[in-house]
Nucleic acid binder design. Structure first.
Lengths: 344, 344
DNA sequence: ATATTATATGTAAGCGGTTACATTTTAAGG
DNA sequence: CCTTAAAATGTAACCGCTTACATATAATAT
């Protein structure tokens, strides 16, 4: 392992070219697996490169129009187990295709769309994965216009022109609610997520539909607003618990809020699931560390990440691929936080 | 928000220069805040750039020897709440100094050092944050040699030449053990981490010293091996629980294993903390979601990330800064998983 | 053996910046 | 008003690579 002192990238294709006794263009050809290079030459170059410890300079390659093997990932932040899971999947898949990852967090630059553009425009990344729930249509349109490859993860495009991955939110919520109903619950509290998000709406709708399907009247009092944050789950649950006729089960739009809910429940001396059942959505790692282990709707978060990368790669391979929308199935994971209603 | 169709970066400094009626060099000066540009000219350039929507091309800048405002972060993976916390801190600080983040996970390329070097050598990043516990001395030496800025986060350098951040592992472990002792426990089980790591050793040592200081004989049987993974905590605890004379308290070298331990404990029908107390190390977010909430030794993970970035920036500002080692304090966080020994 | 064609390699012009150095402009001094 | 130094701006080379085009070499046909 050697490098030139104080001169990081001393070995360039020129060095390799000299060492191998060929031109720089040939070296470039070899490293880009272009055809039309004699096998013997290729070997010579490879040897020389190996010997010198040559490593391609991505900047230069990128500038010159080559590919960088870097993709961007725009996320709100790492504050969220949810995002982390997706990133993990992205990383896994990236390892397979040998791409590097540039991470941009939106909370940094604020929500100024122009700054997103900067990411794109700076030319390093070949495409971008968007895990940002609320993305302006205008931004996407700009991306479309310039033909820049991107994939929406767990976010909808109204345009229908985008590549995207998401999950069966509606079905998941329906099943969760149904499960509770089948356990005998009829007063089922619901903690919403951020209502602007379509995934949130779908979950809400799934809940409502399940109730209707089972002829359970919808009680607006049982529906509390949340914002996906732990504290909002806590607060919403306090509210629900204070109801004259409090729910016997609560369906939280995500796990994090469910965790907050559990705190609130225990705080008033109620037991889970004996006194009140609770079910979440997402299946973040914390769901298992919680006690009792949280019953929840599993979102294949990692897989969403993996699929996102795959969709991006498809676009790289063939820029004309028609846009594609992939929906992954959610499934109910029964753990310990729900039990049949015990009617006294 | 506009971009040239199919031509991402159509606006270059040349465009701006033309628009502003100056030379490209002047535009460059303006964007690099170099002095010696008349205020009026600067304004003209800025205006033109604004109007055209100019965004600097990092590749080009990097190639030409300018700064990229990108730093690298080498981590084992995101599988670990621990790493995520650090990354969060990194991200926060990066937002302040307006740098971007390139994430490399080691599990991708395997542990081949040459490939790390590739990251470095590709010239994109100005420096690198290393959150990799086991890094070869040779790699660090190579970095030193070329004068490439780096910071070790939670990893020691034997050389003493590196910038690094870590925490008072020994003291934290000592305090945790002492706390248990003061609660009346004398049979305190210990689950080790990966013994090769110095932080692990320090924690182990802190545990042993505390026992000695309080004249508690060390019982090798109470010391179980772990690897920081949840399952190893589970297994180690099963082992501990099967002892003829089982411990009344367990100190786990990290929270994740403590979570596994809790599972094992509950599985045999024991209650926490009534029957057995458990204390962790790290204070990952899951520690609070656990039930009972896990008493643990807090590591200022986020701050480690922030400090790491700061140390890197110091090096950027002054390449001759002598290396600096920062140790952050751990502190005991008392929650609900420990209680005084009840002697029957 | 020579003309023709395919294959392999070299040459040179960028890509979009930065920066040393040259040149022009402006301000200060006599 | 002219000289001289300082400040502002321009010119051009270079960063390391890709690629279109030119050229040399090898292969095939005649």
């Amino acid at each position: 392992m050697t490098l030139q002192k104080n001169n990081l990238h001393a070995i360039t294709i020129y060095d390799v070219a000299r060492e191998a006794g060929v031109s720089d263009a040939t070296v470039s050809r070899v490293f880009n697996n272009k055809e039309g290079v004699k096998e013997a030459t290729r070997a010579k170059v490879l040897n020389a490169a190996q010997k010198l410890g040559y490593v391609v300079n991505l900047q230069a390659r990128s500038l010159a129009g080559g590919k960088t093997n870097v993709i961007g990932l725009l996320i709100p932040g790492l504050d969220n187990g949810y995002v982390v899971e997706i990133v993990r999947g992205v990383d896994q898949e990236l390892a397979r295709v040998d791409y590097e990852l540039m991470v941009y967090t939106t909370h940094r630059k604020g929500n100024d769309e122009a700054s997103y553009l900067q990411y794109v425009a700076n030319g390093l990344t070949e495409g971008i994965l968007l895990v940002v729930p609320l993305l302006s249509a205008e931004f996407l349109r700009a991306l479309d216009e310039i033909g820049y490859p991107y994939v929406l993860i767990d976010a909808v495009d109204d345009t229908g022109r985008s590549f995207s991955v998401n999950v069966t939110n509606w079905e998941g919520a329906y099943k969760a609610t149904e499960y509770l109903i089948q356990l005998g619950h009829r007063r089922i509290g619901f903690i919403t997520g951020i209502l602007e998000l379509s995934s949130t709406k779908a979950r809400y709708d799934g809940y409502l539909t399940a109730l209707k399907d089972y002829d359970i009247p919808i009680d607006q009092a049982l529906i509390a607003k949340g914002d996906f944050g732990k504290n909002s789950g806590y607060l919403a649950t306090q509210h629900l618990l204070n109801l004259a006729n409090r729910p016997t089960a609560i369906f939280s739009s995500n796990d994090v809020m469910a965790l907050g809910a559990m705190d609130a429940i225990r705080e008033v001396g109620l037991r889970i699931p004996e006194d009140i059942s609770i079910i979440g959505f997402d299946d973040v790692p914390e769901a298992v560390s919680a006690y009792p282990k949280l019953t929840t709707v599993h979102q294949p978060l990692e897989e969403m990440g993996r699929v996102g990368v795959k969709l991006l790669m498809e676009q790289f391979e063939n820029p004309d691929t028609p846009s594609k929308h992939i929906t992954l199935a959610t499934r109910l994971i029964i753990r310990d936080s729900c039990q049949p209603l015990n009617r006294e």
